[in-house]
Nucleic acid binder design. Structure first.
Lengths: 207, 207
DNA sequence: GATGTAAACGGAACGCGCTCCGCTTAGGTG
DNA sequence: CACCTAAGCGGAGCGCGTTCCGTTTACATC
């Protein structure tokens, strides 16, 4: 039903059945208009009709390109998240490979928290209730954490723990930690690191 | 602490400024109608207008009583959650007090998972994005977990860890674990217990 | 009872996300 | 170039959650 068309903007290097020129033009127009509107007012004050009007496009076109509001938000985030994902897989340590798993776990949390901090509103919209992780980057994060946890914390269910850790970083949850509970970003980061350390069996101080 | 007699409440044992008879009658009608409809079709197929019509009440009345859709869902859940809350505070062990904190943590997870399992859809509706824990029972759970964690896992930030653990039990997250990832309830329960044990420094295979 | 008034009422109306469907057009084919 | 067809288009329209506001009513006071 929601076939998210999130292909590369310009060059069709894959074998997509072909994208018509007008379709490509409209997608770019929509992305440009949406980016501008969101930067100006914040996504919660930008309706789908606003975007369509600003892009000189019918609402039908908007929805055919991006599926729904969440899909559009995801597309707007695409660039930022892709950078982070690349850093995870092939970047420099400690985010990328080359250091102990426990250290990479800490780095993941801190890096991802920065990302969330910058784009909370967009991320909240990109993750509608009941559709967690659909097509989004979450499955990659889950796999990443699972692998790291298998190394760093072999005594727990790595898949489960990966989800549990990710749950704390979910946009809505982070928003609640920061605004609802009034926690500083530093506290959340420290909390993450403490949790990870505790799981990876770091030496505890005894009295 | 002087008791100036400003107005004598008749049978109003609470401190509500007075609830008019028609208001009370309508609230009961709404709750009855909503309960019936939700049992019959599931909340996702019950609109606010449906409830208003079935209760022979204007939509305005519905909203004045319950605020919004989430508030109505919360009210429908009230009975079930209250039982659980009572069990936490003054019930029999291991849910209630009387056993080590680590054991109560495990019991909390298992009990709450049962609750969530029975009422996921309602709980998802009761927790709209960005309004986590507003007026709901979450702050109580958070406090409960915080206190237990201070006992069981003194080496981590108890408040933070409470939130992290709760995040995994959030309705939307649980729905994803169960339906999205296809995990069995048993696996989730075991995962919870494993995590809690790991945090509470249960004996590992080294001194 | 008569009266005043704040609370409660109901449903029309709004804005939103999203769908539907008749029309248009890009781009391959002969 | 003319033709064909499926992909693309746009915007009217739907159903929803929510709000607004003129009307009604419960209840205290006289």
């Amino acid at each position: 039903m929601m076939e998210a068309v999130l292909e590369l903007p310009q060059f069709d290097s894959g074998q997509t059945p072909h994208e018509r020129a007008d379709a490509a033009r409209n997608r770019l127009r929509i992305l440009a208009a949406a980016t501008e509107l969101v930067e100006a007012r914040g996504i919660e004050h930008v309706s789908m009709n606003d975007v369509a009007r600003a892009a000189c496009v019918g609402t039908g076109t908007l929805y055919r390109r991006f599926g729904d509001r969440a899909g559009l938000a995801l597309a707007l985030l695409d660039q930022h998240t892709r950078e982070f994902q690349d850093a995870l897989i092939s970047g420099a340590p400690p985010l990328g490979p080359g250091v102990p798993a426990a250290e990479r776990l800490r780095a993941f949390g801190e890096g991802y928290l920065d990302l969330v901090e910058r784009h909370v509103e967009l991320l909240v919209v990109a993750e509608p209730p009941g559709r967690i992780a659909d097509g989004g980057p979450y499955s990659l994060y889950a796999t990443h954490l699972t692998l790291l946890l298998r190394d760093a914390a072999p005594h727990v269910d790595a898949e489960f723990t990966a989800q549990a850790l990710l749950a704390m970083l979910r946009p809505a949850q982070h928003l609640y930690s920061r605004r609802g509970l009034g926690w500083s970003l530093e506290r959340v980061r420290a909390g993450w690191c403490g949790l990870v350390d505790s799981l990876s069996g770091e030496p505890r101080e005894s009295p």
